[in-house]
Amino acid sequence: MTRAELAPTDPVLHSFAAELGDRGLVSIAGRGTRWSAGGEIAPGVQILRAPTGIVEVSPAEMTVRVRAGTLVADLNDALAEVGQRSALPERGGTVGGAIAVGEDHLDVLGRGRVRDSVLQVRYVSAEGKIISAGGAVVKNVSGFNLPKLITGSLGTLGAIAEVVLRTNPKPSMSQWLVSCDADPQLSFNTLYRPSCVLWDGSRTWVHLEGHAVDVAAEFDGLRHVGKFEPADSPPELPAHRWALTPRDAASMTSVEGGDFVASIGVGTLWADRPQAATPIDAALNVVHQRAKSLFDPTGRLNPGRAV
């Protein structure tokens, strides 16, 4: 095998690479659901869109190959047809956008982290080349883990074109429960593997997924914790995500200036105002800056935006 043969053959990816080229300021837009993350794009930047389409769904491999411009909703519909699902959150955006932001699904405990589900990523580099990173199988430690670096990089290191994601079987049953008198941490501790436990200062929600018999057993186990009743859906989440230790999230009773919802066992908290910023460590910032200058020496990818 020669090296030339290793480059992806999909013409759609090549035309995306050609469009992006190797000069000029560019940014890739999805549906703009997190457009302001990392700062506003500088004026005068050419806005491109990533290619769309689901290339291959392989339920027996628990993988799917999908182009970055595809809507997460469309991906999830296609997966549902074969009894599978992904770890990506559905909030109206694209696959590429979800990965560039790297935000987890509310059910991260059940679905896994977005970062862990990206098996392979093909992106267009600042030099306009298609780079393949990772591999299309569920387990891989061949070489440096570029998919991890790209996921959550807000498009500042490369323009995501196509990914292979790990999928999982869709559980046969899904049930949200809510209680007004249950301790959130105790609820979490009582359950074996809940998909999500939420707490808003007075109510506790629990999302149980799996075999019907297991969901029933977990429900039953919660009787000693509080009075739980079936709920149609999780609560509305305030706009701003905070990162806390799981302990702090569980012991939160109020957030100044509004409502909050905390994810127990995870440490994510949603509030009406942003979390106070913590300054980035200077030595760590050196690594960030070096990565940016090595991957995008001319600063043409998403100028104005920083991770």
Partner: peptide, 18 residues
Amino acid sequence: VTLGSVRGESLGLDLRGA
């Protein structure tokens, strides 16, 4: 340096994962 965090999902470059 400390890569990653024991706090809830923090966005940004996943140097821990790298």
